[in-house]
């Protein structure tokens, strides 16, 4: 299955939504910890959900480059692109 950037972004938001504190607006710029209040266990759960949804593996080191919702989408896009599963 091939993904578009648009699909990736909306899917990432869908996955993050249940983990965010209620009443918080989720935007591309939202910081996972500071704005959405996701804790370290929540982060690992999100990673599992992302891996299942996009059928890929996110190495632990990749988490260090992630701060915001947009960073999550970017990390996914890079990996999909490497595997030829991202439609440009």
């Amino acid at each position: 299955m091939s993904w578009t950037r648009e699909n990736v972004r909306s899917e990432v938001r869908e996955i993050l939504k249940p983990h965010a504190q209620s009443g918080v607006e989720l935007t591309e710029a939202s910081h996972l910890v500071a704005d959405l209040g996701i804790d370290s266990l929540g982060v690992m759960e999100v990673v599992a959900d992302l891996e299942d949804k996009f059928k890929l593996r996110i190495p632990d080191e990749a988490l260090r480059e992630v701060d915001t919702v947009a960073d999550v989408a970017r990390a996914i896009e890079i990996r999909l692109k490497n595997e030829g599963r991202l439609a440009e």
Binding site: V33, A34, I38
Partner: peptide, 16 residues
């Protein structure tokens, strides 16, 4: 948000 960020970066703990 600023407080959460400061604690996360300084200590590595998510404030609930």
């Amino acid at each position: 948000g600023e407080v959460r960020r400061a604690v996360q970066q300084g200590i590595g703990l998510t404030v609930d």
